[in-house]
Amino acid sequence: MNSGIHVILKAEQLGSFFGLPITNSLLMTWVLMALLIAGAYFFRRRLALRPGKLQAGVEWVFERSFAYTADLFESEELARRFFPLLATIFLFVLIANELEFFPGVGSIGLMQGTVFVPLLRTPTTDLNVTLALAIISFLTIEVTGILTFGVLKYGKKFINFASPLGFVVGLIELVSNLGRLVSFSFRLFGNIFAGEILVLVAGYFLPYILPAPLMGFEMFIGIIQALVFAMLTLFFIKLAIMEPHGAHA
């Protein structure tokens, strides 16, 4: 940090590999995956019928969230199908957000010429990551709707010539569905990126004390955002598999 506040909207490129740009957020994603996979592996190895404290805690969270999902879907089978996706979204976003303020993230880097390039950047502060997640979530929602009702019936949710009102409602539905791509990706990106900048700016005012409570707050925001992403996906899937408007009237 040599010249004032240094805010870069996009992830910096560290190099490239067979034409794939290796950015610091991509590197961080791999670190995050390695952490999660290693965690899952060690957790699985120690899985026992008589749980220890850690296992009991994880089981409690797992069971509660699964029960909530099943409640919402009103179907154990649907919950079984979608729970892994929802849980992975939550874990991915959560760990990404929580790693944001770990020492070394954003502070260890390379000098490219005269420009400092951090090696690691929180994945959720890279729109590529949040957009990819949004696309996955969006596709899951829409494909689930189509598989449940068929193209024609699901399409009637959006393009409906039955009545002028139905047509307008359909259009609004269409726009709001497409809008999810933007809202999903920018909400997460915006919240986490803004938090990072907030802490950065606070560091300029009062470098030793002020950033600490803000970091705590941003870690809380990280949990909330992870929850929001997963829960919205859950709700939108539920909306997609509900009868289209007017079909049950």
Partner: peptide, 12 residues
């Protein structure tokens, strides 16, 4: 925002 198709696919 540095959106890049390859990166999007890689992240997905």
């Amino acid at each position: 925002f540095g959106i890049n198709g390859k990166l999007l696919i890689a992240q997905a």
